[in-house]
């Protein structure tokens, strides 16, 4: 339960068994909700034509925001919409609020007519912009993040050269790793672990998925993941992989 990690502010200091149980329930509930909202961010992101990194930033902004605040105080969907808007600015893939509102409205009211550009629309727009300002302040204007994406791609490239080119071409390791990395933003993995570690973990899982082994893995002085990140242990990788797989179980739970 990454939501219940020590970094979360709402975890109380003193706890009884009962309280702990209660907290766990709450955490599970919240995790599910956040999963749902981040799913919304990703889906909207795809429909808005956002690239992976801006979507990741939006999720990061969202997760960070709710790590520091309570769900009761703010509407998560509004926060998500503002996060998308803000991420577009941060990652220089500017999005129009109009598109964000349209897509979100359609997501929340499937099959509905497109919104008229009336006063209601402008109110929605204002609320997004207001919320964006609020989020900026809450995040201390630190909305620029390091993402595992860049690392992962370079790892993939290095690996590609070391592997037999035919087995590489046959195996969609790159796509799988990319998919895993994108999906990992449903949770707060990227807030809990070093970005390099997350990148290596998704690569590790992707290789496992296709039963691919890095050549001369055993023969080398150093395992391949340690080359990419000095301070990484296999245990960390397995932790991350495990948490990632747990996230996928939520996928079926929600739908």
């Amino acid at each position: 339960m990454e939501g219940g990690g020590s970094s979360s502010s709402w975890v109380p200091e003193s706890r009884t068994l009962e309280e702990e149980q209660e907290n766990a329930d709450k955490a599970a509930r919240e995790m599910r909700l956040h999963f749902k909202i981040t799913r919304f961010i990703m889906e909207a992101g795809v429909k808005l034509g956002m690239q992976s990194v801006p979507i990741a930033t939006a999720c990061m902004v969202y997760h960070k925001f709710f790590r520091d605040t309570s769900l009761d105080a703010y509407d998560p969907y509004l926060v998500a919409m503002s996060a998308i808007y803000l991420a577009g600015k941060v990652e220089e893939q500017h999005l129009r609020t109009r598109d964000i509102i349209n897509v979100s409205h359609r997501y929340l009211h499937p099959g509905s007519e497109t919104l008229e550009l009336d006063s209601h629309f402008w109110e929605l727009r204002d609320s997004i912009v207001q919320c964006e300002l609020l989020m900026l302040r809450l995040l201390n204007f630190q909305v620029s993040f390091q993402h595992p994406h860049k690392y992962l791609l370079h790892y993939l490239l290095s690996l590609k050269h070391w592997m037999n080119r035919h087995s590489w071409e046959r195996t969609p390791v790159a796509a799988a790793a990319w998919a895993l990395l994108r999906d990992s933003y449903h949770g707060t993995l990227c807030l809990q672990y070093k970005v390099q570690h997350v990148a290596i973990a998704v690569l590790y899982l992707a290789l496992q998925c296709y039963g691919v082994e890095v050549p001369a893995h055993a023969a080398g002085e150093r395992p391949w993941w340690q080359v990419f990140s000095e301070d990484l242990t296999e245990q960390i990788i397995l932790d991350i992989v495990s948490k990632l797989i747990q996230l996928y179980s939520l996928d079926t739970e929600i739908s």
């Binding site: 992976s52 796509a175 895993l180 996928d251």
Partner: peptide
Amino acid sequence: EKLGISESDPPSLMRGL
């Protein structure tokens, strides 16, 4: 692009995505 991953139709292992 070099690795052949599509951003317009991004891969995902989530059923809902």
